[in-house]
Design a protein around this nucleic acid. Structure first.
Lengths: 332, 332
DNA sequence: CTTGTCTCTGAAATCGATTTCTGACAGGCT
DNA sequence: AGCCTGTCAGAAATCGATTTCAGAGACAAG
């Protein structure tokens, strides 16, 4: 592998001059030619490790997410990657599996690899971004804010999304609406539950008991389990709000297996139904613009990398109610 | 940020001794204590960039895939990540979007970042891994082999998968079976089509005309478009093999929208139906063990990193026919 | 007492780029 | 002519770790 010294030797100049040419600093046209030719014949690529060591900053940004198999996050990832790559940064994706230790390890790596910035969708409510901030690295939280850290964050209007989904069911005539949301430790899950609660308190003469709000893990299995339990209750509800896309899939599976149509047992889903193969007529879906969330987070990160100072900004993106049809739900 | 020199100064030893402690080389117990204590009080983390520069090898492996939004690849990614992380490597995921230029750029970066190895699912049939190989880096191809490069590869038995899907439809009584496979430039797509063709030539008195094999892009939209066209043919087929998971989703969408049941119009899918919300009774699915493919590729990569020499190994993983039910298809 | 072997340690070189510092030289101005 | 300004180039320092090399000291054997 050719180094800058090889290029310098072949071109008959000093390494400093080669470096200058590579970085677009003024150099005499004659030398520039020589260097470019030499670099070409040697097929020279600068060693990024050496460059990063010296510059104290690499051209890589990390995106840390809790579940790479959830389309919500892969779509988000596309958004971040598109924005960052356009600005010349490479994006590396780190999957924490919801594990705080793994997340910490990735943030550690981002720090000690001198990465320019990190977009993180925190696994838990306390993410250890302090060391990064102290070193002046750009950090943006996405999907879930990091309490106590004064950083930019891009989140969904989760309370609003919960309200939209619940309202859709209410307006369809359902009156005993349950809610399957995510773990009590995840703020997005709590907020969506709060939206459900708020709306029912406003509309319903008899607000729902607390047993109508159940927590699942945010996966298909969680949705299946809680939905099954709800259906087997003595006084079962007549409709349910699914707290995220995967819970929605699980709940729909159970309903479909039992032959319950959306007219018989109402269901609304917060989050897009990924890769749905059937027209989900009658199932209101709150579309969450995850890709936009990603591009927004990417843009904020780039601004920070470019030196933007100031207090943490908070961008809230609203969900949008739509009646799911496969043509729209799939692939976004 | 504390450096090794700070630790050395605080402990009253030389940087060399600190390095030795960190890397488990013999040092007197007294000094070892001193160094460990000093490192702890300074909250010291070794700078990975400096280490990588000196060692000429980082503890990072790259996974390069063409479509991060396809569950096929995210599941694969999980497999690779699990294996690699267990061995102490961090995995960075690079999404090429099927773009050869992006792929090349990522491979370039892997080289100039001194990454220990790369698992690549090539976007096109010619991937430029030569520079990596010349530098002695570990490279494993996954999903699609790289013709001309003597490297390890882990692939699906695509011909076999095509045969399995087609046979299932034949045994269900369908006789005019079409096939929607992927682009002609992707070898997995071609092989699945060949499996379909082979089987029909063996079983059918009148093998299908070439117009029964159509190419789509490997996405939901491709499946929808080709399925719609097939249905509008004057002499339309009575069944179809979907060449991958997303084409299957698209084709199923079209069939469901038109109210055609699997009994009326047969469909078999190569690849698992992701996040299916409905019991897909009567739709044979060829399960592809993508996660296993990932762990296998990861294992081969680790062996290569550990210095395994020898000609490229080729591991072929068979698909498995199963009748899709949501409980099994979802989330794996 | 000398010699050899071992273990442990620190000084200094090294990885490959960037960047500061310094000097050489050309040209413009008084 | 003398001075100043500005442009360009190279030598050397620098980033922060690892690793080689050589030396110091302990100890055993002859």
């Amino acid at each position: 592998m050719a180094t800058i010294y090889d290029v310098a030797a072949l071109a008959g100049v000093s390494p400093a001059t080669v470096s200058r040419v590579l970085n677009g600093r003024p150099v005499s046209p004659a030398n520039e030619r020589l260097v470019i030719d030499a670099a070409q014949t040697l097929n020279y690529t600068p060693n990024r490790v050496a460059r990063t060591l010296r510059r104290q900053l690499s051209e890589v940004v990390a995106l840390v997410i809790p579940d790479i198999e959830n389309p919500f996050f892969t779509s988000l990832a596309r958004g971040v990657a598109d924005t960052a790559q356009q600005a010349g940064y490479s994006v590396v994706l780190c999957n924490t599996d919801g594990d705080v230790a793994k997340e910490e390890s990735f943030l550690d790596i981002a720090l000690s690899e001198n990465m320019a910035g990190v977009v993180v969708a925190p696994a838990a409510s306390s993410s250890v971004v302090q060391p990064l901030l102290e070193r002046g690295r750009a950090v943006v939280a996405v999907d879930r804010p990091i309490p106590g850290a004064d950083i930019d964050s891009v989140v969904i209007d989760n309370v609003g999304a919960g309200r939209l989904a619940t309202r859709a069911l209410w307006e369809a005539g359902f009156r005993d609406i349950a809610c399957i949301t995510g773990p009590a430790g995840i703020v997005t899950a709590v907020d969506r539950g709060r939206g459900w609660e708020q709306l029912l308190e406003e509309l319903s003469p008899a607000p729902p008991g607390p047993h109508r709000l159940v927590h699942a893990d945010f996966r298909v299995g969680g949705g299946r389990a809680r939905m099954t339990e709800l259906l087997e209750l003595e006084n079962r509800p007549d409709a349910v709000v699914a707290g995220n896309n995967l819970v929605g899939v699980g709940a729909l599976q159970v309903l479909n297996e039992r032959g319950l149509t959306p007219a018989e047992f109402g269901i609304a889903v917060i989050g897009d139904l990924p890769f749905s193969a059937h027209p989900e007529d009658g199932v209101p879906v709150v579309h969450l613009p995850t890709r936009t969330m990603g591009t927004t987070a990417g843009a904020l990160l780039l601004e920070r990398i470019d030196g933007h100072q100031g207090p943490g900004r908070r961008i809230v993106i609203p969900g949008e109610l739509l009646a799911a049809s496969p043509g729209r739900a799939a692939g976004r």
